[in-house]
Design a protein around this nucleic acid. Structure first.
Lengths: 347, 347
DNA sequence: CGATAACATGTTATCGATAACATTACCCAA
DNA sequence: TTGGGTAATGTTATCGATAACATGTTATCG
């Protein structure tokens, strides 16, 4: 049964009238603070209860110039990474009393970026979270436009820049952890299958690989690294190439778990025993990776936490600005951790 | 460099003043429609351009009682399913000019449901999409409360009910497809690992399995089915139990790809050759499943499309209500498809 | 050629709240 | 006893837009 007539909204006026007070008094009751006599408070509260009055956040946002809403700009939502981050964002936002206004980006064209930001600002968001990977020069717009955005903006998974706030997993450190673990296992010839190197995160992981090897006086030339595109199919292909270029390889650090899955499959096909002949380590710790065959050793990044941190930070920025304090831009890193399973083993 | 002074917003008044017209005229220019002389239009547009004026959607929402925003209630965002659906929702919403106000549910307590709905309504959403699975009686609240919600509500992945609009994958049909495929492969003893049977979707998949077998005069007793919890770990366990109860099993329909992964792993451990001795078919078609070893045959559900359909439908409902037409509740099904890979094969 | 419609623009009220200021009563210390 | 602070409440302006109505000017038509 569909209610055919639109019930009209119960407003603060209705409550005021029914309680025989001014709207201002009702507002005072609703928002605690400030002086209201106990008797009046109770009377108003009774009426609120009875009429089932719910204040319009929308109207409040307009009059206070503040919406308690965060704009969230995402890219690649259909992949698991962004959505785990989003989950952390949603949880923390809820906890702190904010709602999320979402916008999915489908490209990094400067016009569409402007459009997205404008549409968020038109709805008075109090701050913006940029949950899109840094790829090539796609963050260049910020030099020019960021200063013109009248609310705080915080970037996730972006290379730290002066004067801009960001939160990211320490991908470099993740690469270091991975390679160190392989070295600890006694491996001598460590290859790498990277993500697309235009991605900052992929580049950082590779840097962790390279610098750790160099520090040990080992070889980390580009022959020992192939580039994939994060997909399992590309991991498969990259692995085939890498085997040709680097036949003596006895361990491989793969930049994400999906690609590592491709590697495992190809290794099965070629009867390369893992971990005996080849150790494999991934990155991300997707839930399935514990059930790969063999179970995948990997670097875990806590994306949930990343999202939570991001919300925490931006809310602090919002409050600071509210209180007219100057906002100090910060870049924070979340440390990844090593998860040892069966695909790597001492020799 | 952080802009320390909050620039004040450029409003329609500023534009009106600068262009020497009334705010109403500016409004007319911004919204096309209605009469404005070409000359005035150009003058106003020039000023808009020059001041970089952007209307406040917030103010418009208040005055029009309409926000061009959809409330989206999600559950289990961190899993891949909901986020693929969300991606479809985001795309279509963008295309139709709507934004998304998100709220993640962390339980199905009636109070928290009320709270979520209230907070969406307080922000004047034009409609609500309920992207949370139907589990046990967790949708019971709707009998009592749904009628009181003054905007259209559309449910995803809910059992069709009279008078309530919903969009869902046809899980029953998916089960039918899976079992038929196994029969086509010449399998005779077909087991099932289900999701938690309190979930409507899990129950439907199981029903597809059972009824198809019964129709063929074959056995589909509860000994031939074990219940998992969607995780790979539970798939593993369920498979072990099922092997004991049903040793002659030569094929198994697993209710999602994650659990199927657990099955594959356990089969490896026990040296059960797949597909020769045991055919395995999953459900969902997650991107990794093509790279399982062996590649997994599965039932693909198009969650992106599900999301798009949902937005399309609710926008139609909103427009109908706007035009004071009565809204006819509909339940729609999206048909899943069979993806044949290596884990099933003729015998 | 006067009535009527189409065009162009302005004025005032409204959406639902809060901010800022005003008013009144009461109590207490100087 | 009088000025000043606290308490309780009301009044008016404001947030940034659109709706509804009003007004004046041109065309158009019978």
């Amino acid at each position: 049964m569909i209610p055919s007539e639109r019930r009209k909204r119960i407003t603060i006026k209705d409550v005021a009238q029914a309680a025989g007070v001014s709207t201002q008094t009702v507002s005072r009751v609703m928002n605690k603070f400030s002086y209201v006599s106990e008797e009046t408070r109770q009377r108003v509260e009774a009426v609120v209860e009875q009429l089932n009055y719910r204040p319009s956040t929308l109207a409040r946002s307009l009059s206070q110039q503040r919406s308690y809403t965060l704009g969230v700009v995402t890219f690649g939502l259909k992949y698991i990474g962004p959505s785990r981050t989003l989950n952390g964002i949603a949880d923390k936002a809820d906890e702190l009393g904010y709602m999320l206004l979402m916008k999915e980006l489908d490209n990094f064209d400067i016009n569409s970026i402007d459009g997205v930001i404008d549409s968020l600002l038109a709805r008075q968001v109090d701050g913006i979270l940029w949950v899109a990977p840094e790829i090539g020069e796609n963050h260049n717009w910020l030099d020019e436009r960021l200063g013109k955005i009248p609310v705080p903006v915080l970037f996730l998974a972006m290379e730290p820049r002066n004067g801009i706030s960001s939160v990211a997993t320490d991908n470099y450190q993740g690469g270091v952890l991975a390679v160190q673990h392989l070295l600890d296992c006694g491996r001598k010839n460590i290859g790498h299958i990277s993500g697309p190197l235009t991605w900052w995160e992929a580049d950082e992981r590779k840097r962790g690989w390279r610098e750790t090897l160099l520090k040990m006086g080992m070889d980390a030339s580009d022959q020992h690294c192939t580039e994939g595109n994060w997909s399992s199919a590309s991991g498969d292909q990259a692995f085939i190439q890498l085997l040709e270029a680097f036949p003596q390889m006895d361990a491989v650090f793969v930049a994400n778990d999906q690609m590592a899955l491709g590697v495992l499959r190809e290794a099965h096909r070629r009867n390369i025993p893992i971990p005996e002949q080849l150790a494999v380590i991934g990155f991300d710790n997707i839930p399935e990776s514990a059930y790969f065959y063999p179970a995948l050793t990997t670097i875990s990044q806590d994306l949930q936490m990343l999202g939570e941190q991001a919300v925490q930070s931006i809310v602090e920025m919002i409050q600071a600005r509210q209180g007219n304090q100057s906002v100090i831009a910060q870049s924070r890193f979340i440390q990844p951790t090593l998860i040892v399973r069966e695909s790597t083993k001492r020799v």
